[in-house]
């Protein structure tokens, strides 16, 4: 693997050292989650095989470091691709996934953070990447993940008076 990704991986893995206050993300009750990735906690920052996964670097950071990660990637010329969530209902966690692309090099980086499902809050990165604004709004719509500091979290794709979050796994459609 190229030196660029290696250097980025080194820098990112420094972020992944859990802050003392927050529990490490891999702390989740493993085994219950359907994902094998969660079944045996992977290293928080790993270089992945593009041919198998579709991205080059997979970083799991503590939830309070996503903005730092965004700053690092911004400084290295990455652009935001999308922000989305995954509801790991079995382990009571929400995963927020940030996809980054590099406009002049073929690198793709995935940054993840796991937050508790019942208090789904995470810092916004929309001041670093304005493109994240809409993606975060959409993620709030679908998952009820609150992005702290986001300018406007009103329903975006859902109707403006909606109070449901359809991609949460415990969502039941109205009768």
């Amino acid at each position: 693997m190229n030196g660029f990704i290696q250097a980025l991986a080194d820098e990112m893995s420094r972020l992944c050292q859990p802050a003392p206050a927050t529990p490490p993300p891999a702390d989740a009750p493993a085994g219950e989650t359907p994902s094998a990735a969660a079944a045996e906690p992977p290293p928080p920052c790993q270089i992945t095989d593009y041919g198998k996964r579709g991205f080059h670097l997979d970083v799991t950071v503590p939830p309070d470091r996503v903005v730092d990660a965004a700053h690092i990637l911004d400084a290295r010329g990455f652009g935001i691709d999308c922000v989305t969530g995954v509801d790991w209902i079995a382990s009571g966690q929400m995963e927020v996934v940030y996809d980054y692309f590099h406009p002049t090099a073929p690198w793709r980086v995935v940054v993840r953070a796991r937050i508790p499902r019942d208090r789904a809050e995470i810092q916004t990165v929309s001041h670093v990447f304005p493109g994240a604004n809409w993606h975060e709004r959409e993620t709030h719509d679908f998952f009820d993940i609150r992005f702290i500091g986001h300018p406007d979290l009103s329903p975006f794709l859902l109707p403006e008076d909606s109070d449901f979050h359809p991609l949460r796994k415990d969502f039941t459609p109205l009768p």
Partner: peptide, 9 residues
């Protein structure tokens, strides 16, 4: 599909 997450553009 085997477990995991995948990306394709």
């Amino acid at each position: 599909v085997p477990p995991g997450d995948y990306f394709y553009a």
